[in-house]
Design a protein around this nucleic acid. Structure first.
Lengths: 214, 214
DNA sequence: GGCGTAATCAAACTTTCGATTGACCGGGCG
DNA sequence: CGCCCGGTCAATCGAAAGTTTGATTACGCC
């Protein structure tokens, strides 16, 4: 019906073969979409996004352990001139993931349980250069706006995540190339924002509020 | 090529439309498979498994918040006579999930990052009435068998639960009508069993192993 | 009826955590 | 431009946490 409109070229980046197949199946039924490449790792996604002419990248955030994170890949892809739009597609809607994605330059943030129509709509929105956020994600961002004093900064979330993994202040400082003083400083702010007085209580509170993945 | 062999009838149970589409795409390419139904919730999977003649159910463990867990559905489906085999297909390989699935009567446990061939092979294995475990999963089960002394006692779990809620040793001692010495003593044993050296790491380890509800 | 294990407590000791105070730098904003 | 905020660091000090050693009671088990 639209032989003269160029299709939207898609790159799928997800380490799950089944998910890639599902996205391909769902999106290929749309006449104006064309899946031109698939990446099974974040590194490969960056390569392909540079090599292939692509309009929109569907990017998972969690790739297998130890490798590059989807947010890094998003930043790498978005950095170039004339870069494709990156649509983050993940399972979780935690503060840490959302913030990381948005700051990395993602054009949208979708949850994997989204219905196909929502997915297609988001891709078109992204291709048009606009921003596409899942309702649940939008809510969470609004919450942060309404209560800015209680929202943890990016760095604070990073520290708290390591605390939740059971690391000591010394271990955290080495991991993040900081001094112990800085780690303690972050923790003081985290405790104040969460209204707790110990690292363990902070992890508990943050998990309960969806700031940390469980 | 095999017109006289009845196909293996499959039921897909997953709340992610994309994953269902992916499984369908991957499995429908196999000549001897036939996807006869899809369920977007655990409850629906139980209904369909009773209503439709099905050979193998591909069951996700995590369904959207608050609803029935995949393990419960697995148990419900497996309870009946002549029940289909249930193949658990999930993202995580935590002790808690694996144990729950196995105890619920699952015929296999696969990770979603499995390649399609492995998936197909597991379905055939399950259909033949045998057990199919992903290598990573099998390893984890073996580890549990080899280290049975790691199980926490009732009291230790009680203490660790309060630790996870962010209570101090003093608070815990008052809550359980103990002395701080006893709380510390329990923690020493907990640390040894979990092979960690701090309360926060203990919570992390216990959560990862499914010893604590999160 | 001894034996292992879980649960309880104590005291002394080291290490880590957390509170407090104060400082510097860079960037966004009115 | 001054101001605030986020991120960085330092020094100190008291309070928890964690280690070590050792002991008592109680329960189930062969």
């Amino acid at each position: 019906m639209t032989g003269d409109v160029p299709p939207i070229r898609l790159l799928l980046a997800d380490d799950h073969p089944v998910v890639r197949a599902g996205l391909r199946a769902v999106l290929d039924t749309e006449a104006d979409f064309r899946v031109v490449a698939e990446a099974e790792s974040a590194e490969r996604a960056v390569e392909l996004a540079a090599a292939e002419p692509v309009d929109v990248v569907l990017m998972d955030l969690q790739f297998g352990a130890g490798r590059m994170h989807g947010a890094e890949a998003t930043a790498a892809i978005s950095a170039r001139d004339g870069a494709p739009r990156v649509l983050v597609l993940t399972t979780y809607d935690t503060d840490a993931d959302i913030l990381a994605a948005v700051e990395a330059g993602a054009s949208g943030y979708l949850l994997k349980d989204a219905p196909p129509e929502e997915l297609a709509a988001a891709v078109r929105t992204a291709a048009a250069g606009q921003s596409a956020l899942a309702p649940a994600v939008a809510h969470r961002l609004m919450d942060r706006m309404r209560a800015p004093g209680e929202a943890l900064s990016r760095r604070e979330l990073e520290v708290l995540g390591l605390v939740a993994d059971g690391l000591s202040n010394l271990q955290i400082s080495k991991r993040l190339f900081l001094s112990q003083a800085t780690v303690k400083s972050h923790l003081v702010h985290i405790f104040a924002k969460l209204d707790v007085e110990s690292r363990t209580a902070a992890v508990s509170a943050a998990t309960a509020r969806g700031m940390l993945r469980r």
